[in-house]
Structure formats: C-alpha cells, structure tokens
C-alpha cells in the first residue's frame, strides 16, 4: 500500500502525523509526504523543514529496531521537473518527501495519480468546518478529484465505529480492503449501510450484495452489522452518524448512486459538519 500525506506547517497537519504513523506501522506502507509551494523556480527551505520535521515525528513513533524506513539527508533533495522536488530512501519500505509548486488540491491529486497511491490522507482546520489554510475548497477538491481513496482526518485517536455507506454501482475490492484496514487499525465496529432506491430490481441486488458482504466478514471472523436505508433518508443518516463514527462513503463510477445523492454540496456539507474523520472510497 502506498499512502500520500498532504502536509503544511499548520497544527491540523502536524496533528495527523501520529495517526499516519499508526497506519503505516500496521500496514508497512510506502509513504509519501507532500508539501505544496507557490514558487516554481526555487524549493522553499521552510517547506523542506516542515516535511522533514513531520518525517522525524513519524519515525520517532517506531522503535528503532522496527522502523521500516531508511534515514536520509536533506542534502539529497533533487529537482525532478520544473516546480517539482523530491528526496527518498528505501529501507524495508520506501519513504519519500516531495514538494510540488501550484495549487494544493491539484498538486495532491496529480501526485497521487503519478505515484499510483492507494490512499491520500490530509487533516483540516475545524474552525470554519473543514478548511486548509483558510481555503474551504482544498479538502473538498481532493476528496472529489483524487484518483484513489481519501481520508480526511478531523479527529485523531480511536474511533469505535466505522459506518460504511454502500454504493449500488460495482463494489471494488480495493475499497473493501481499505475499509478493512481502517476497521483493523481502530479495532472498530463496522456497520454496512445499503442505500435503497424504489426500484425493486435494484432492491434485490442490494440485498444480495449485503448478504455477500456479511458472509465475507463472517468468514474472516470480523463482526459487521448491516442496515438498509431509503435513499431519501441517506443525507440525514450520514450527517447524524458522522457525529461519532468515521463515515466511509463509497463514491464509485458513473453509476454511483451516492454520487447522485451526495452532490458536490453534500460532500462539502459532510466534510464541514462531521465531527469525526471522513473516508471517501474509490
């Protein structure tokens, strides 16, 4: 698994490093820390320092003999393209620091695609809902446009429940696996929620999918609860559940029912009103 972590020097970014460390410890993931700056010509020393400090924070979470990443010197920063710098080290797993110029959301989405990341993680400032350095659009744009799953951490620490809202389009194995890792990390209860439309054919499909998923978890000795709700209730249900549980929203392909129900403004609303972290699954 490869995790891309978007970071700036603000408290909400520093606050997620421990959570990322826990995730990378359990999954032995390759990790990329990405900073974004304005200048295309020269790499920002302060940006380098922020990433380096966050990297040190993450490394310090591990016992020295269990650290899967190699150490590296900041002198090895390399310009790999205009407005694009990186330094990396390969131990048992790879750790990369990268700085890209441009807008934050575009840089995160682009690098996640180029580096074939499986998960993007970022924090956000809760003062006005969920913003990044005063810009409410950054977490939303990343959640909407990233080519992989996105975890927006609003509250670090242990969450006891993960509510996974199922799409009616194809359920990707990768998305199931991503939920599984989060459930394992938090030792959390899993509630799978199917969203039902009036269409009777799709009702059967949804019920069948729920049964298959429950069997999947039962076979793996993972306790999971299932629930089916009407599509008209989905926004209220999600808003209410998100006060305590991590919400995992399945935003599938073009056929995605959730994509239709959760228009741009609803994902925005979820990011802004949820007290706990939000997980957008792809």
């Amino acid at each position: 698994m490869k995790i891309l972590v978007a970071l700036d020097g603000k408290f909400y970014s520093r606050g997620i490093v421990k959570e990322v460390a826990r995730l990378s410890e359990s999954t032995l993931a390759d990790v990329v820390f990405l900073g974004v700056q304005d200048s295309e010509t020269e790499v920002s020393q302060s940006q380098q320092m922020v990433l380096h400090e966050c990297q040190q924070d993450l490394y310090s979470y591990f016992r020295p003999d269990e650290l899967p990443y190699a150490d590296f010197s900041l002198e090895k920063w390399q310009k790999i393209a205009s407005g694009d710098w990186k330094v990396s080290a390969t131990g048992m797993k790879e750790f990369t620091l990268r700085i890209r110029s441009g807008s934050v959301a575009k840089a995160v989405v682009d690098v996640a695609g180029e580096m074939e990341c499986d998960l993007v993680v970022l924090g956000c400032d809760l003062k006005h809902g969920c913003d990044w350095d005063g810009d409410m659009n950054v977490p939303l744009r990343i959640a909407e446009d990233a080519p992989c799953s996105v975890l927006v951490i609003k509250q670090s620490g242990n969450t006891r429940e993960i509510v996974s809202i199922l799409d009616q389009s194809e359920v990707h194995q990768e998305a199931i696996e991503m939920v599984n890792q989060l459930v394992t990390l938090h030792s959390a209860d899993l509630t799978i929620v199917g969203v039902q439309e009036k269409n009777e054919d799709k009702k059967d499909q949804m019920e069948q999918r729920m049964v298959e998923l429950l069997k999947y978890y039962n076979d793996r000795a993972v306790s999971a609860w299932a629930k089916v709700i009407n599509s008209a209730m989905v926004t209220d249900y999600v808003t209410e559940s998100s006060q305590n549980a991590i919400i995992a929203l399945w935003m599938g392909g073009k056929q995605s029912l959730l994509k239709r129900l959760f228009s741009h403004s609803m994902v925005d609303k979820l990011l802004n009103t949820s007290k706990s972290s939000v997980f957008i699954l792809r």
Binding site: M1, A29, D118, M178
Partner: peptide, 11 residues
C-alpha cells in the same frame, strides 16, 4: 515481504 491490501500491480 508483507503487503497490505489494497496494492497496485506494480507494487
């Protein structure tokens, strides 16, 4: 080696 799912084929 130990790989956590999901992973890309390249990995």
């Amino acid at each position: 080696d130990f790989l956590a799912k999901p992973f890309k084929l390249g990995e």
